[in-house]
Nucleic acid binder design. Sequence first.
DNA 1: CGTCGGTTTGAACACCGTCAACGAGGGTGG
DNA 2: CCACCCTCGTTGACGGTGTTCAAACCGACG
Lengths: 232, 232
Amino acid sequence: MAALTSSEHFALGRLEDRERSLRRGGTLVRENDRAGEMFVLRKGIMMTSVLLDDGSRQILRFMFPGDMLAVSNLVYREAPETITALTDCIVSPFERSALARLMNEHPRLSALILVYNQIERAALTDRLAALGRTSAKARVAAVLLEMRNRLRMTDASLGESFVLGLTQEEIGDATGLTAVHVNRMLRQLEDEKLIAREGGRISFTDERALSRAANYVDRYAGLDLSWLPDAV
Amino acid sequence: MAALTSSEHFALGRLEDRERSLRRGGTLVRENDRAGEMFVLRKGIMMTSVLLDDGSRQILRFMFPGDMLAVSNLVYREAPETITALTDCIVSPFERSALARLMNEHPRLSALILVYNQIERAALTDRLAALGRTSAKARVAAVLLEMRNRLRMTDASLGESFVLGLTQEEIGDATGLTAVHVNRMLRQLEDEKLIAREGGRISFTDERALSRAANYVDRYAGLDLSWLPDAV
DNA sequence: CGTCGGTTTGAACACCGTCAACGAGGGTGG
DNA sequence: CCACCCTCGTTGACGGTGTTCAAACCGACG
């Protein structure tokens, strides 16, 4: 992304000096708990979600190794979101003060954190537009594409087919649908030969058509970081 | 929010040394245009939206005086969102380099920008949950509450009733509904005596019930900024 | 072998969208 | 001053997308 100086590397590394592991399904942060630490995700896949008072759940975002977790804990007294593990995970907790100090001493890292925030914001707005204005089929297709592409960022060897690692209920909570309807949409995508399924594996048999069906935009592309100050 | 030093004030003021005005309906940034400047909104109300390829529109966020506009232009080569004026507006344009310099010289302002980002992120996720998991009535109620509360932040004298300044089609584009259905939901809220309408004015006649119907959370409350480094 | 979480499928239903028509207000040009 | 148009709001009838409820199936695991 951008070349870091060794002192910047060292500063970031200090955020990762401890480790904690979680089982699939484990909860790292619970909504409305007093906000405490923040985390770097080292290994595994996690998600954030909110619970509404009728008991339904909305999944907000999936997170992958390298992502910062619970940044909102920096700002709020109580956590606005629940964070849970989709697979077995390893995270590194750190304190607010550690991030404050990092930003104080490394302006370029502050800027990179801002960049990271903006990418996340763009991804959230894509999802927002999908929920507001696209069909169930498009939303399901978008989740499949998003997961494949982000999985590929941490495992470049990932090919045509991949293990999704989400239940249909989880896909539903991410797309604002019921598990039953997600099932029907997956079947339809399969019948139309856009994807193939066997067990938990998904293969894209017509990725172009799938992207078109999903209105998909890769928010990790098209960046322009030329304005970043030079490394000191 | 947090006390600023005079040099911090001065640095922020430099972002506002120029002015540009826009008429209601005018476009400040168009989706997919080459990303150029960023802005501070000085006066008026604006909104960001995206267009889908079937021609439908999703409104992402409403913006009020003091908000930074087009921060995504810092990061992307092409603007991901359209920004238009809901009322006559005054904005102050500034360059990427100006923000980069500000962050370089004032770490505490970097931190405040991060805070601002997180609040915006929380508001986006609330909207996301609303679109995914709440009824049409709840979404419309949420927009009404959001507009009233944010209007009140810039005009503390705002009382029980206020001028919404949105067409029903705009409410629909914000909530993922059609203008026709927005109309029905407004009528229903009126019939249930949660709101009253006359012309463009809206009054909350039962704000508690309205908040309950909307699952509304004020994301400008509950902040904890104790970790901010002291002013130098 | 039984249980449990997840998947699959069907049938009935509800919410919200679509289409269409009409009315109110405001601006423009004759 | 009036005719015209345009945008916005309003209401009704109808249809479709997605939900709800229910039942059966499958594989994993104790």
